[in-house]
Design a protein around this nucleic acid. Structure first.
Lengths: 173, 173
DNA sequence: GTAACTGTACTCGGATATTCCATGTCCGAGTAGGGTTGG
DNA sequence: CCAACCCTACTCGGACATGGAATATCCGAGTACAGTTAC
């Protein structure tokens, strides 16, 4: 089993957007901060936007913002938005194949194995649904190093770059 | 997220081997019963054999048998045997990338997001570990249609095929 | 008649193609702000 | 000086390549049974 990398990216970006509350952040900046391919990260952010987790704005001063307060965003929301809603274990009903074809009617009790697997998956989903972005936020606040403040500082310092005549190139040419 | 089809096949085959207790079943028969590609199913059964869940015997009268009683086989065992032991969510530590490179030392507290995801995954694994093949077995016993008896009957009737002169072809030529 | 031998058929086991999805990249539509120009 | 206009730069959004893993297949090594033959 394997979970797409987009989930990790999406979660970190949501956490970052939670740190800079309300501030609109372009995907290029998000990608630069995490050292990720911008275009592909954009794809994942679009998935989050379609799910209503973030809100996107075009043009200058545009970018992505959290659409809801962190308490209203669960980890399950993010995972489902990116990975899709379908279960990891997909029952193909192979018990109806082979010599048992037609013997097992549609009214037969559901596949026991599928039920068991679904039970485990519900436990996973439940644990994800119990943890909100606010919890992650609080956990990071208690940490040493104050990553939220550092991120805010970096994002405040970065935008006003002077592209006109003041490009401080290290090389002289 | 997506779980390989081999997991479903492996689980159904284990259940089938539990129904026919002790009887050695070739992979071709297992594949025929479930209407699956035999060679690929063989691959999955090899994974189960490497994990010590089933035992394989070569030659005629060979095939696969459960290596342990069903009470000693958990769903997690089967899933891990086929899908591997590594976690679905793999933390790439992207928080250390970008401008924060080098700021976060190796002694920093573990990634909060990775911890949260791991917590959910542990819930999944725990649920899988709590359910044994014997539970599945018991659940199928209570079902209508008695699938275990039917399977036993079919497997008992199938092997003694007379390939010599008695091929009852429907077509006359 | 019995026992050893040989041959065959059947099994798993791993090495080898192929297909599909996750990953990655690219370009176009649309908006907002800033600069310019006319009043 | 002020307001309207245009233009540029920046943003998202979806369409288009690419790679690697899951899927599927094939052939070889090894064993057990059955038939045959010699004693």
């Amino acid at each position: 089993m394997r979970l797409g990398s987009g989930v990790e990216w999406g979660l970190h970006c949501c956490l970052l957007l939670a740190w800079l509350e309300g501030e609109s952040v372009p995907v290029a900046r998000l990608a630069e901060y995490h050292d990720l391919p911008a275009a592909y990260l954009n794809k994942q952010m679009q998935a989050l936007a379609r799910a209503g987790i973030v809100r996107s704005g075009p043009g200058a001063k545009g970018g992505f913002v959290l659409a809801r307060p962190p308490e209203m965003i669960t980890l399950l929301d993010v995972v489902v938005a990116i990975e899709g809603r379908e279960d990891a274990f997909r029952c193909t009903e192979i018990r109806r194949s082979g010599p048992e074809r037609g013997v097992i009617s549609d009214h037969t009790a559901p596949c026991t194995i599928a039920t068991a697997m679904r039970k485990a998956e519900l436990a996973w989903r439940r644990s994800l649904a119990e943890q909100t972005l606010a919890d992650i936020l609080a956990a990071t606040q208690e940490k040493a190093g104050a990553p939220a403040s550092r991120a805010r500082r970096w994002f405040a310092r970065q935008p006003p770059e002077n592209p006109g005549s003041n490009t401080p190139s290290t090389r002289g040419d």
